[in-house]
Simulated assay, not measured.
Amino acid sequence: MRRAWLVLACLLPAWVQAGVPADNVLAHGARDGATPAWTIAVDTPAGWTRDCCTYARAIGVDAVLYQGEWSGNPQRVMVLNVSARKLPTLAAEVQADRKRYLQHDPAGKVSGFAVRQRAMPCEATVYQGSDHVDDVVVFCDPGEASGIRLSWSMAFDDADSSRHALLDDFMQVVVATRWTRDSATVPPAHGS
């Protein structure tokens, strides 16, 4: 598994060059106190369905990307969460997430790597669960003025034969994600 992540990390620069169309809005949020309205845009890989308002809302997240029909199964679903900045740094956010994970699964294994995202700093964590379900979580920080942090996550069975293709698509989404300030009037796109 570790070798796959090293290979994946080496492939990131090619994805960073990919542009994101301005009309590729996936999710948005209204102004909340000092936090300005925001929009998250991302290019969706072929074969993935975008959802911000039906299944995503039902499970309490900002957006999901999934293949085929929605099954309700958390594996093989890319999940976008946007939240107010609570901790002072991106590193503190990542460390808090790792601590929560290990409290939940003390036998789990944790590794991480930097993500080359052109628009904002991001940091990835790979969780190998004792339940044989692996998770990859990437936290990104669009900057203090944004008032938010965002994360992408995806879970998959550790023996999933399509794991590498799933991770390729996941990282393509992560590095193509763009945050924009004061664009909440743009309706989110879903179903592509």
Rank of each mutant, 00 (worst) to 15 (best):
W5H: 04
C10H: 13
C10Q: 10
A14G: 15
A14C: 03
W15G: 05
V20N: 11
A22H: 08
D23R: 13
H28R: 08
R31F: 13
P36R: 08
T39L: 03
T39N: 07
V42K: 00
G47C: 15
G47H: 06
W48V: 09
W48H: 09
Y55H: 14
A56S: 15
I59E: 15
I59C: 14
G60Y: 12
L65K: 03
G68M: 12
E69N: 04
V77T: 08
V77M: 04
N81T: 11
N81D: 12
V82Q: 00
S83P: 01
L90Y: 01
A91K: 06
A91G: 12
A91V: 05
V94D: 01
R98W: 07
K99W: 07
Y101A: 12
Q103V: 14
D105M: 06
P106H: 11
G108R: 07
G108C: 14
P121A: 15
C122A: 14
C122D: 04
Q128E: 07
D131L: 10
V138L: 01
C140R: 02
D141H: 07
D141A: 10
G143V: 07
E144C: 08
A145E: 05
I148W: 00
S151M: 06
W152N: 00
A165F: 07
A165E: 14
D168A: 03
Q172H: 13
V174T: 02
A176C: 12
A176F: 00
W179R: 09
R181V: 04
V186R: 13
A189P: 00
